[in-house]
Design a protein around this nucleic acid. Structure first.
Length: 704
RNA sequence: GCCCGAGUGGCGGAAUGGUAGACGCAGGGGACUCAAAAUCCCCCGCCGCAAGGUGUGCCGGUUCGAGUCCGGCCUCGGGUACCA
């Protein structure tokens, strides 16, 4: 009986499918549609097992729904703008566009043999001018609809390279290339006003019945609706213009436990005070020598500086609190100023202990008289506590009742108001980089900031750029930014910032419904194909990409590019697990890790060794020359690590496909572990999957 | 730090609060065969010759009974707004 030969069978059928145009999607209003989409890949150059898993899942759904009779849309494209192309340009002296399109060609060639049921006729890359030109049109429509704004924002500034750094490029507070400590610097930036949609985006999460619970929780927490009290402290001997210090607190029930006020090093008052206080200026400068990421700010050692200023407690004109500058107060949240209630917040307590500030208990655990010592007492506000020291009453109450009473008291007495705040901030989209979608506005001395004429779109990236010095090549370009004002016709300068690449991926799913259109979308096509019935991708996109896309769909609806029915673009979401592989690591004399490729590892008595690399005259490894093999070093085996080139634990799909065929790889990643869980690639598992296919083949042969 | 997950044999994993490890992979033994492939049967958490003991990351609690519920941890993974 003939054995299954994937190398013959797979190309044969793929050719048949291709020639029949089996997967080409055509709008047909008489038929029910089904739109399957996997998160499109970044063209890094090679596909990896994670891609195979992702696209196979979508393929399974698409084929199943097709068999059920649905009219299927299952497209593929490329998330093609981004930093790696610019890094390649700097390191390999290759144009980002050339690098990107070469990578796309290579990856498409790798994907075709997988036999996915994709409609390749709708393919596009976000770096195609036909795509980003339509994105510029959307930007202009959003601008006109009041969905875009300009304001100051802080960025990571590398003082040596004189360039803005991404958070990823800041390592331990230092620039990744220069090694210089980064500074926080303010720039005027473009923003999408996503925070206007905070309540809407939050409330609509309830309707996302076919999304994983965990993603809905993460999005809810990210938007972060909170009810609290906003009030101002009177500042004694304040600098001009700073007589009142606005603070926001979600725990106004601890107001009687206040022992200090604290402001962010970036707070206007801190900036004002540092002008006449060199020690404070040095402290603030030091605090700013941390990256802008929330993680860096929150995990930095808690430090403070006493400004010497006092504020008056709102409930007692004779009670004064010191004002400190503290590095753990975030300028981006609330008002950038807080009051510290040390007994009921661990950070405040640590800060109070460090600087000898008071600790005043406002409430105790029910049925206990234990006072706070080294651990703050901060139960959830849904828990009952025993209030002992407040301005609104004592005794057992749910925390939220205490908060409500405290807010009511403040509103009655007139020193504060209850406000609802959201953690969600506006979406800053300006990037000081070349390889992105140019922001289509012009700066005119006479007219100010002027939108480009749509007739001039796309505003194309210039081809003749160099990366021999740091910074944005669009700024360095001799002529590109020179233009005329669309308003008055005088000489003007183009905006040289490009858009965040998340913008590109926030509407590609809509573009797939009419990929060649001369407008961003075509209503009839969008109305037929949207929404995406099943969206599949990595959980790492649970918050940003998915939230931005939900906002974008609303903004596109508002500007007439999507129907009302499409404001939740993804009906069902599935988050797949990663494909991982063991890492094999040894160390050099100084203890730095050295990583080894899986094929260089040999196992003996369940211990891994690096295969000896010495070769004999004819090129055979010496270790194979009879007798005991020569093993060099024992290898540390780190299980279940994300595949990455730098760790050398990547298994290339090509090798597997060459050896066993695409269906073996597809079957392995689909069957080895539940789809939402991590799957660890193992050679034994791949062989098992291959045996399984052989069995299926034999059974089919016997039947037919 | 904060938010969200995960943790059960060699491996992937099952188990409405009721016999932990279904099913599968890998492995071991056997049958068939001249031999192999294929197929079929048996064994397979750990300790123990056995009887038996023990066992779902750790500590504690609720319960007649906990992998499952509650509290407190630990480890690993994802995100943390300029990686995509």
């Amino acid at each position: 009986m003939a054995r299954y030969n994937a190398r013959v069978a797979e190309p044969k059928w793929q050719k048949v499918w291709d020639q029949a145009g089996l997967f080409k999607a055509e709008r047909d209003d008489s038929r029910a549609k089904y739109y399957v989409l996997e998160m499109f890949p970044y063209p890094s150059g090679r596909i990896h097992m994670g891609h195979v898993r992702n696209y196979t899942m979508g393929d399974v759904v698409a084929r199943y729904k097709k068999a059920q009779g649905f009219n299927i849309l299952h497209p593929m494209g490329w998330d093609a703008f981004g930093m790696p192309a610019e890094n390649a340009a700097m390191e390999q002296k290759v144009h980002p566009g050339k690098w990107t399109y070469a990578n796309i060609d290579a990856m498409r060639a790798q994907m075709k043999p997988l036999g996915l049921s994709l409609d390749w006729s709708r393919e596009f890359a976000t770096c195609d001018p036909e795509y980003y030109g339509q994105q510029q049109a959307l930007f202009l429509d959003f601008l006109q609809a009041g969905l875009v704004t300009r304001k100051a924002a802080v960025v990571n500034w590398d003082p040596v390279d004189m360039t803005v750094l991404a958070n990823e490029q800041v390592i331990d507070g230092k620039g990744w290339r220069s090694g210089a400590p980064v500074e926080r610097r303010e720039l005027t930036q473009w923003f999408f006003r996503i925070s206007d949609y905070s309540e809407e985006l939050l409330a609509a999460i309830d309707g996302l019945k076919d999304w994983p619970e965990k993603v809905r929780i993460m999005q809810s927490n990210w938007i972060g609706k909170s009810r609290g009290l906003q009030f101002s402290f009177a500042v004694k001997n304040a600098p001009t213009g700073f007589a009142a210090l606005e603070v926001y607190t979600t725990r106004p029930d601890t107001l009687m436990g206040a022992s200090f006020a604290a402001i962010s090093p970036d707070h206007p008052l801190a900036r004002e005070l540092e002008r006449s206080n060199p020690a404070l200026a040095a402290f603030n400068a030091d605090c700013r020598r941390v990256g802008t990421s929330e993680e860096a700010l929150e995990t930095a050692e808690k430090r403070g500086f006493d400004t010497g200023l006092k504020v008056v407690h709102p409930l007692d004109p004779n009670w004064e609190l010191p004002v400190w500058v503290a590095n753990f107060v975030l300028m981006d949240y609330g008002t950038g100023a807080i009051f510290g209630s040390a007994a009921h917040d661990q950070r405040d307590l640590d800060f109070a202990h460090k600087y000898g500030l008071q600790v005043i208990d406002c409430f105790l655990p029910v049925g206990s008289d234990e006072r706070v010592d080294s651990t703050a007492y901060s139960p959830p506000k849904t828990d009952p506590v025993n209030y002992v020291h407040t301005h609104f009453g004592t005794g057992k109450m749910i925390g939220n009742e205490g908060v409500d009473l405290a807010i009511a008291h403040a509103e009655r007495a007139g020193y504060g108001t209850g406000v609802t705040k959201y953690r969600l901030r506006d979406w800053g989209v300006s990037r000081q980089r070349y390889w992105g979608c140019p922001i289509p506005v012009v700066h005119c001395d006479a007219c100010g900031v002027v939108p480009e004429n749509k007739a001039n779109l796309p505003i194309r990236l210039p081809e003749d750029v160099t990366f021999d010095r740091p910074g944005n090549p669009l700024d360095h370009h001799p002529t590109w930014a020179k233009t005329t004002c669309p308003n008055c016709g005088k000489l003007a300068r183009r905006e040289t910032d490009t858009m965040d690449t998340f913008v590109d991926s926030s509407w590609y799913f809509a573009r797939f419904t009419a990929p060649k259109a001369t407008t961003p979308t075509v209503m009839e096509d969008a109305a037929y194909w949207m929404n995406v019935d099943q969206y599949i991708g990595g959980v790492e996109h649970a918050i940003l990409h998915l939230l931005y896309s939900r906002f974008f769909a609303r903004a596109m609806e508002k500007t007439g590019h999507l129907p009302k029915t499409a404001i939740e673009p993804f009906k069902a979401l599935f988050t797949q697990g990663m494909v991982t592989h063991e890492i094999y690591q040894t160390r050099d004399e100084s203890g730095r890790p050295i990583f080894h490729l899986p094929e260089d590892i040999v196992w003996k008595d369940e211990i891994a060794y690096v295969r000896d690399r010495l070769l004999d005259m004819s090129g055979n490894p010496l270790s194979d020359m009879g007798g005991e093999p020569l093993y060099s070093m024992k290898v540390e085996v780190i299980p279940s690590a994300k595949m990455s080139k730098s760790k050398k634990n990547v298994v290339d799909p090509d090798d597997i496909i060459e050896q066993y065929g695409a269906d073996t790889a597809r079957w392995f990643v689909m069957s080895y572990s539940p789809p939402e869980r991590v799957v660890e690639w193992t050679a034994a598992g791949a062989v098992g999957a291959w045996y399984h296919l052989q069995r299926v083949w034999r059974i089919a042969e016997e039947i037919l």
